[in-house]
Design a protein around this nucleic acid. Structure first.
Length: 623
RNA sequence: GGGUCGAUAGCUCAGUCGGUUAGAGCAGCGGAUUUUUAAUCCGUUGGUCCUGGGUUCGAGUCCCAGUCGACCCA
């Protein structure tokens, strides 16, 4: 990584600006187009004046192939733009009158009584004519398809609410029909026309007028296949959203999900707040931070990894129920489940325990899912949302399972035909490369035998389990690691609904205190804390606990974090003296909750990568 | 960080064993077409085969290095 950053500028050749539609490259292409136009003019002029002697070579000039296929496409659009200007039409018109605008969805709603087939959107012609009553309708949108028939033409217009066919006929439009030659796919237009139904039953506007409002200078991707190259899609999301309707629907769904979260919490009397994203300390989660710098104060700063400690200060300040939905930043790897910046929902509730929050969590998930479903149906995404529901490998309809962490490990061992000996021997299993292999001979032998006990026992990632155990400094950490390797990979198959067709969300509860530096210890067993994480189809979505409000205990936990940091662990918290001071002023008993909003969106919309639910995911630059 | 796979026209993709001038569909351009909906029909433009190096009489194809991406693992 480091070396890459250092050497990239000198190594990277001026190439790489090939093939991929990169923003920077686009500009260059445009410049090249302009230059080449000037070139051509000059050459043509010289042809005319110099005549015969240069004739042979200049034919070569004339027949010189267009710079590239892409540039030829751009040139064609520029020529249409010029043609518009010559006819006094502004290709980037700004003054529009939307006072009588109809959204496509509104228009369809108005003609709903004439629907013959709701699934295929076929309409009865006579009833549409009657309902329209001779009115002209005014619509705005982008042209996404066209079919020409000489003296007639079909367009497909898309606005934010849906798509509608426009039908242009020469005998209706008169001279305006010829101007359609300057209209390209992807142009933004306004159109007026009477509502009618075509021979095939499609509701259409028979155009009296079509005006280009904004000329698109680049074509859309393949009308049928769209854009499938993942690299292109993520780098040029604005194109992806036009070319891949589901990609746009997912972003819309995400917005609705966030709205649903707010709706639920507002209804429970929570106050939405905003807390700092820049700070001098790292806290609220064990994660490696991004660093930055404030110039005026000459102060090194961290981007927050979680809002937790500020939200709990608000509890001290008398706000009993607060929440924040905000961006957090963790300087860690990128994967299908991790983006360096991501959105966290955290809420804190005074006089509640983690047990209270388990009930709240179930209610919240069901509320948001219902909200998403009904809202998307209203927006005309009924088919899509049905498909998502069917594809989901989990169900929210049944009670979520609850299992204490230790029990979950014991159960999982049983299912793998392994005994408690595995749990008893965690410390001895630890393996790291520093120690001689001979020292692990016993453990190697046990693992070899355990692997033979069952197919599931063989599926366990023993090498990495043993490596992770080597990094543990306490029994609590070892239990947690055992859980991660022996239980978590099997959650989705172990916890199923009544008929076994879908997985059921699982609360894993009662974590070791060593891996929970901000959670309250259990009264009955101080080696554990009142904490749960929620796993939906085996993926961690939530983390919640009864809050630690004993300043002395919190101080000891912070000290332990600092010890780990001094030993070289990058994913630790700082000692936050001001937070201790806040606790000393008295924080009410409370429980707090965190939810990965991106991951929730992934789960509810069946998206395989976090990049699909983020409008503009982080990409390595091309050049 | 490791492994596997991939990169060919603006987009989606073929390209056989290393062998003639690298093909198709869409989009574009020209033509025909007044009810199509992936419209159709005729014609046509468009290529740094990701980059660099190597092997070879000959490389899109084989080898090495690199870039970017996808997936899996860490």
């Amino acid at each position: 990584m480091e070396s890459l950053r250092g050497t990239a500028p000198s190594l990277s050749s001026p190439r790489r600006r090939r093939g991929r539609l990169l923003g920077v490259r686009r500009l260059r292409v445009n410049e090249r187009v302009r230059v080449s136009l000037r070139d051509r003019e000059l050459r043509l002029r010289s042809l005319a004046t110099l005549q015969a002697p240069l004739r042979a070579p200049s034919i070569g000039v004339l027949r010189r192939p267009m710079e590239s296929g892409e540039e030829a496409l751009l040139l064609a659009r520029r020529q249409k733009l010029e043609s518009m200007r010559e006819r006094g039409k502004n290709p980037f018109a700004n003054a529009v009158d939307t006072s009588d605008r109809k959204l496509v969805a509104e228009l369809r709603a108005g003609f709903a009584p004439a629907l013959l087939d709701a699934a295929e959107l076929r309409y009865d012609a006579e009833r549409v004519t009657t309902l329209a009553g001779g009115r002209s309708f005014h619509v705005f949108g982008r042209l996404v398809a066209r079919r020409g028939f000489g003296k007639a033409s079909f367009f497909r217009l898309r606005d934010r609410s849906g798509e509608l066919q426009l039908f242009a006929k020469q005998d209706v439009m008169g001279t305006a029909f010829a101007a359609l030659e300057d209209v390209d796919l992807a142009d933004h237009v306004e159109a007026r026309g009477r509502a009618m139904v075509t021979k095939t039953g499609e509701l259409s506007l028979e155009l009296s007028e079509l005006r280009v409002l904004s000329k698109a200078m680049r074509p859309l991707p393949d009308k049928w296949h769209g854009m499938t190259d993942a690299d292109l899609r993520y780098r040029h999301r604005y194109v992806d959203f036009v070319a891949t309707p589901e990609a746009a629907a997912v972003i819309r769904a995400r917005g609705v999900i966030v709205q649903g979260l707010r709706d639920f919490l507002d209804g429970e009397g929570f106050l939405e707040v905003e807390t700092p994203t820049l700070g001098t300390l790292v806290g609220g989660a064990t994660a490696r931070p991004f660093t930055t710098h404030h110039n005026a104060l000459d102060l090194p700063l961290f981007l927050r990894v979680a809002p937790e400690l500020y939200l709990k200060r608000l509890l001290v300040g008398g706000f009993e129920r607060v929440y924040e939905i905000g961006r957090c930043y963790r300087n860690e790897g990128i994967s299908t489940r991790h983006n360096p910046e991501f959105t966290l929902l955290e809420f804190y509730q005074a006089y509640a325990t983690y047990d209270t929050l388990m009930h709240t969590t179930e209610a919240l998930f069901r509320y948001v899912d219902e909200f998403l479903t009904t809202t998307l149906e209203e927006l005309g995404f009924g088919t899509l949302v049905k498909r998502w529901h069917a594809e989901r490998p989990f169900t929210l309809a049944e009670p979520f399972a609850r299992v204490p962490m230790r029990t979950s490990v014991e159960r999982s061992l049983e299912r793998a035909s392994l005994g408690s000996e595995v749990l008893d021997r965690l410390e001895a299993l630890a393996f790291d490369n520093k120690t001689k292999a001979a020292a692990h001979a016993d453990a190697d032998g046990w693992v070899a035998i355990w692997r033979t006990r069952s197919e599931r026992a063989n599926r366990v990632d023993w090498p990495n389990l043993r490596r992770a155990l080597a990094a543990c400094g306490s029994a609590g950490e070892r239990l947690f690691v055992a859980y991660e390797y022996l239980v978590e990979p099997f959650l989705a198959e172990d916890y199923r609904n009544a008929d076994g067709t879908k997985s059921v969300p699982v609360f894993i509860i009662d974590y070791p205190f060593e891996v929970s530096p901000l959670a309250r210890k259990k009264d009955a067993d101080p080696t554990l804390v009142d904490r749960f994480e929620l796993f939906v189809d085996g993926r961690e979505l939530c983390n919640a606990f009864s809050e630690l409000n004993d300043p002395a205990d919190q101080e000891a936990r912070f000290r332990h974090q600092v010890e780990l940091k001094n030993k070289g662990n990058a994913e630790t918290m700082d000692y936050d003296a001001d937070y201790i001071l806040a606790l000393e002023h008295g924080m009410p008993p409370a429980a707090g909750f965190g939810l990965g909003v991106d991951r929730l969106a992934m789960a509810l919309t069946c998206q395989p990568s976090i990049r699909d639910v983020i409008a503009f995911p982080l990409m390595r630059p091309e050049e």
